[in-house]
Amino acid sequence: MKSPAITSSRDLRYLTPARVGLGRSGASLPTQALLDFTLDHARARDAVHTPFDAARMVRDLESAGLAVVAVASESEDRRTYLRRPDLGRKLCAESVGFLDKHAADSCDLAIVLGDGLSAAAVHRHAGPVVRNLLARLAGLRIGLAVVATGARVALSDDIGSRLNARMIAMFIGERPGLSAPDSLGCYITHRPSPGLTDADRNCVSNIHAAGLSYDEAGFRIAWLVREGLARGVSGVALKDESGQQPMLLIRDSGPV
């Protein structure tokens, strides 16, 4: 089917949340466009500084039937977290001891929720996406779920290795943009261990109201988890070919 012709900047704005066709007032932006920019910028800043409600996320995962624990990185506060990314990649000493006590037999998948750069994204989207994902992973051994405060992506490597997980899926708030302050990402890593790089991970990103739906995100993550376990790889060695299979839609009550 041929796409409708775009005849004006107003038509173009219906197709994208990007800042296009804003017009001008003299040498400046129109007042409304400037106010919209200022509001979106404030929302992005708020997302970065919003406190992470770890207790709420623990309850959310427990309601999905998971055993859950809460841990923290070496970032002692939000200011430190933003200034020292390296500390967000390491578990604090108390959390190391706590996780080691909970280490069990190997599991197929461990799930981590980390605040990242947008706690708002985790609050809004992580619970529904995880429930959608679990409905697609029947037959796999799901291990302990972890809620991590002050987390960077690489924190999942230490967590996964201590939990003896064959695969780990970390849901984390992405860096806020002016059109999406609450975007959630999921990083999938086979045989997590400290020292891995982003080349060893697969990422499903842009999970939010105007991005990937919970169904599409759950479907892609489940495909990567199952194929990664079957092939024993993740990252650049595992190409996302989930689009070659039909997507099963999931509702809260189950598959439809």
Score class of each variant (00 low, 15 high):
D115C: 05
V233K: 03
T80C: 11
L212Q: 11
H190Q: 10
L29S: 08
T149C: 00
D86Q: 07
T197A: 11
L82G: 01
E62L: 05
D40P: 00
S3N: 13
C107S: 14
V69D: 04
T149M: 00
S234I: 00
D157V: 08
G143R: 01
L82H: 01
L144G: 06
Y187L: 06
L196R: 13
V130L: 02
V153F: 02
S253A: 11
D86H: 04
D200Q: 12
P192Q: 09
H49S: 14
V204P: 09
K2N: 04
G160V: 04
A138F: 11
L184S: 08
L22V: 05
D240S: 11
G23F: 00
H102W: 09
D108A: 13
F52S: 12
P194W: 02
K2V: 02
L178M: 10
T149D: 04
Q244V: 09
L87T: 09
S25A: 01
L117W: 06
S213V: 05
A210L: 15
A199L: 12
T31N: 10
G114F: 05
V256R: 04
R56T: 15
S75M: 10
S213L: 05
S161C: 13
A138P: 14
S179E: 11
L39E: 15
N164P: 06
V225R: 09
S106T: 15
T7L: 09
R19A: 13
A119M: 04
P85W: 10
R152L: 00
G150M: 08
E94R: 13
V112A: 06
N206I: 13
S9F: 03
S118L: 02
L178V: 15
S161V: 05
C107V: 15
N164D: 06
V129T: 14
N164H: 13
L39N: 15
V68E: 02
T31R: 15
L91V: 09
H125W: 14
S193N: 12
F52N: 08
S9M: 01
Y187H: 05
V58W: 07
C107P: 11
K101Y: 02
R10L: 08
L212R: 15
L15Q: 02
E74Y: 01
A64N: 06
C92D: 14
A67L: 11
D11A: 15
L212T: 03
G116E: 01
Y214V: 12
S95F: 03
V69H: 03
A138Q: 15
P85H: 05
R45C: 12
K239A: 15
R226F: 02
A169I: 04
S213W: 04
A237V: 08
L163P: 03
E74H: 02
H125F: 12
I250M: 08
D240G: 10
V153T: 14
N206M: 13
A110L: 08
L29E: 09
H190G: 07
D105M: 00
M1I: 06
R24C: 09
H41M: 08
L196N: 01
L61P: 00
A119G: 06
G195N: 11
L238M: 07
H102R: 14
R175I: 08
L39M: 11
R19W: 10
S213A: 05
V71D: 01
P85D: 09
G139Q: 02
V153N: 04
Y14C: 07
P246S: 03
N202L: 04
H102C: 12
V58S: 07
